[in-house]
Design a protein around this nucleic acid. Structure first.
Lengths: 207, 207, 207, 207
DNA sequence: GATGAATGAGCCTTCATTCAT
DNA sequence: AATGAATGAAGGCTCATTCAT
């Protein structure tokens, strides 16, 4: 796919050079996350990403042959990250009361947060390729749907999928609170927690 | 501010030229909405907006001295539009059962929809100025908060404001459903309606 | 096709602005011929062509939306020029002795000369679009074949076409002599004249 | 000059490394011919040439310190090759009827053909240095002139040189036929043979 | 000596904005 | 006031060449 060339090389074995390459890729990706987050996909420039990561523009293009490929890689990495997180959550969820599950969702978004808002720009602003964006959405929805079915026994797969879409959107609200003043933000988070809680409760009742 | 120059002129009195100017501004704004919606803020070009509105690029710049100012004006107009809609809703809301209020919110978003997604691009993609975006948010929140207080007697202003933020975000989900397949979309809307309903009900109970 | 936008505009009527545009297009094309000739298609830069024609790079792109389109336009113009020249020659040819026809061919190439070598770069170096290059070749061959049939009664169309290819190539040699020292060049031209002469004579005999 | 450094080294004596070096140089040159032929001088990249020859880019630059130097070396080698071919032809030519000499020229170009078109790119596209290109031309002309004097007794050196230029250009037409459809091509070749034949015959008569 | 990651000048192209007409 | 040609900064991207390992 759009994985950086170096990553696939590095996957085969990690010589000293691979090590340096990996560091560089990491630096670029970090810079990418930063710049995309700050400016949005279109306004972000490869030159700035290169500069911010201490890389020559040519080197950046060595690892990511296009702006889109960088966005894709970032999105993919993030998707993987989230997937793992959700998988973990899935394993603990069956033993948790529904309220805690709600909290877990919110907390999960809180943890992602910083890495998250850039994902929003890439997904919303058509930054990444259509494919990658679709994949991303699917991963998110699948992971959440899975948790929901464990948390709410008897929930049909279809219903879980539906809920995952709505829930995911609601949780996106958590990230958006980042722009509010701290005091307000805290209250907003509480409010969102409450909303998620009653959503799950309701579904549990209905289901 | 970023109001079109002609608008302030026109405010003073409407000579034939003012009339023509108003028409032209309207045409530009319509074209602006179209192009921003289709391409997003960054990818939209002033030249295309001018062409699409049958205006010379120079004239466009006479009315809107920068791309951002056009985005600002569009956002402002939209905010006003929404404000009115919400104000209308506010007047009917006190006599409605809470479920109907929930539906009204969703239906309202559905009505806005087309005009709405462009607003999202401008707000999310930093198309408009930070000021205008903030103003936009405030208008939305204020209007919704007002409705909430009427729909749910005893709701404190602060709580209403808080809820408006969360509710607004949830309702944004309505617009996003536009990308889903029709069958799925219908179910998603139902799901969102349900969520809004229980949210209001819960607030009513808690309040 | 790839005609400069301004040219088609100007074709409709020539207002003062059209006049300026035409001048500018002419300047650009002249600079294009120069630079393409000196450096070849690939090594030529749009920036230099712009500078050499006293045009801002943006303006250049207003008239010729891509490097290739400029090359195409240049080739087309040249093709038209040659076509006319050949058509003219065609009308005088039936009354001329074969030797004079041969000379006419060589002289014709001599006249074209300066404009010619750039055409060679564009055609040989894949500078222009494949279409335009094919069209160019066809025009040249058709024109020459036509002349041949008038000059050599009884020449079949197929044979004329064949001969036009060979003759055209031979005549290309005239242009190449431009790099030789004057004294040598004169003798080379005489030699080529002789070759063309005997080629025509032979064909006349054979035909 | 632009000879590969290793070649001069190798000239002194051939240690194992010299042997390996010579192989490598050969591989690079082969790849160079391929890539230059396929893409033309400008579009060819050193990286691809390196890859195609199984050589590290750094090594390529050890042998050929610049793209131009590689082109020069290729042209030189080709010139030598042609020189030998012409020398061979020269020895058989005195016993051949003039028609066969004409055919021999055409056949010779046919044989070179594949290696030839790359030379055209390098020479026409200014790929190689001006010096090397001049040298190349001289070699070709000298070789052909020599043959001409043997084939046509009494031909003055000056006249032979003159004819060689014209003849060489005509023969270049043989290579160009490669782009035509096979049926057409066959006829073109016949036509060229005929032209060369009468050219030689004429010179023989005149001489 | 071999390797290939790193470099950065420079290319083609776009587009917001200006200003002469 | 209207027009649209002109401008040039800036962006994404390529590739010849270098140099640390």
């Amino acid at each position: 796919m759009n994985l950086p060339k170096q990553i696939s090389d590095a996957a085969r074995g990690s010589e000293p050079k691979g090590e340096k390459g990996r560091l560089r890729v990491a630096a670029i990706m970090e810079a990418g996350v930063q710049v995309f987050t700050e400016k949005g996909y279109d306004a972000a420039t490869m030159t700035e990403i290169a500069a911010r990561s201490g890389t020559a523009i040519g080197s950046l293009y060595r690892f990511f042959p296009s702006k889109e490929s960088l966005a894709d890689a970032l999105l993919l990495r993030y998707a993987l990250h989230v997937k793992n997180g959700l998988a973990e959550m899935a394993q603990q969820v069956s033993e948790l009361p529904l309220e805690s599950v709600a909290d877990a969702f919110v907390d999960f978004m809180l943890v992602l947060q910083s890495q998250r808002s850039f994902a929003n720009s890439l997904v919303d602003a058509r930054g990444a390729s259509a494919d990658e964006r679709a994949r991303f959405r699917e991963v998110m929805r699948g992971g959440v749907a899975d948790i929901l079915r464990r948390a709410i026994p008897g929930l049909s797969p279809a219903k879980a999928k539906l809920m995952s879409v709505v829930l995911l959107h609601t949780l996106k609200g958590v990230v958006n609170t980042a722009n509010e003043e701290p005091a307000i933000r805290a209250m907003l988070l509480t409010e969102i927690r409450e909303l998620v809680r009653i959503y799950l409760a309701s579904a549990s009742g209905r289901g």
